Computed example of a mutant assay.
Amino acid sequence: MSTLDHIGRKIIAAIQSDGRITVQELADKVGLSASPCARRVKMMEDEGIIKGYSAVIDQAKVGLPVSAFASIKLEKQREDYLDRFAQAIARWPEVVDCYLMTGQYDYLMRVVVADLAAYERFLKTKLTRLEGVASIETSFALGQTKRSEVLPVE
């Protein structure tokens, strides 16, 4: 893992707030010339610090207004059960976030769907059919207070 210096952190902060920033604009913001700035960005991409670039999409405006948070408990916390679960959910586009957790449940996932009927279909045709799932508890978001992909690097 690379240790980021002050300039590296400034680059990350700028890219996080505007992923479409030009190299020249980025260089001006962080106090470098364009070539060294581009090299540093490329180095951070190669090291996996910068994993990619994407657009932030309004889920309601694309017909997916429902966020369901499912807490999953597996029958056993053995490696093969954990691996099988992770491999299955990686194929399901409805699952947009999933975390292996400590505490009462093994996983917490956010599922994005068009409506309650779509969540029910997801539950019946995918999640409950997955071998090794002992229990599922779902909560539905009433609204979103904050969402961010911006890490507090500075």
Rank of each mutant, 00 (worst) to 15 (best):
L108S: 10
L82N: 03
E149Q: 13
V30D: 06
M1A: 13
I50D: 01
P36D: 04
R78M: 04
G132S: 09
V41T: 07
Q144D: 14
Q87K: 15
E45D: 03
G19F: 10
F85C: 04
H6L: 14
A134E: 14
V95E: 11
P36E: 05
V66N: 01
L142S: 13
D106G: 10
D58I: 00
Q87A: 15
M43L: 03
E120L: 10
S17W: 07
P93G: 05
A27H: 01
A114I: 01
Q104G: 04
G48T: 05
Y81G: 02
I72D: 03
V95L: 13
A90I: 03
L26Y: 12
L123F: 07
R78A: 10
G103V: 06
R40H: 02
D5M: 13
R110L: 12
Q87I: 13
Q77M: 10
R147M: 11
D80R: 01
S35R: 06
R78S: 11
S148I: 02
S148V: 04
A86S: 14
K73L: 11
M44V: 02
K29A: 11
D58F: 01
Y105C: 02
M101E: 05
F69N: 11
H6D: 14
P93R: 02
S17F: 06
Y53N: 08
K29Q: 11
L116P: 12
D18N: 15
Y105K: 09
V112A: 10
I72H: 01
M44D: 02
G8E: 11
V62Q: 08
K51M: 12
L123I: 01
G8Q: 07
K146E: 06
V96H: 06
P93A: 10
V96K: 14
V112G: 08
L82F: 05
G132A: 10
A13E: 12
S71A: 11
T145K: 10
K124E: 15
I49Q: 00
A114N: 04
A70D: 00
F140T: 15
I50R: 02
S17N: 14
Q77T: 09
G52W: 09
Q144F: 12
V153I: 08
E154G: 07
K61W: 00
V95Y: 08
L130F: 05
M109S: 15
R129A: 04
P93W: 00
K42H: 06
P36C: 08
A34E: 12
A117I: 15
A13R: 12
R147C: 10
T22R: 07
Q59N: 11
C37Q: 03
T145W: 13
S17Q: 14
V112T: 14
S35T: 09
F69I: 13
A70P: 06
A55F: 09
K42E: 03
L100C: 06
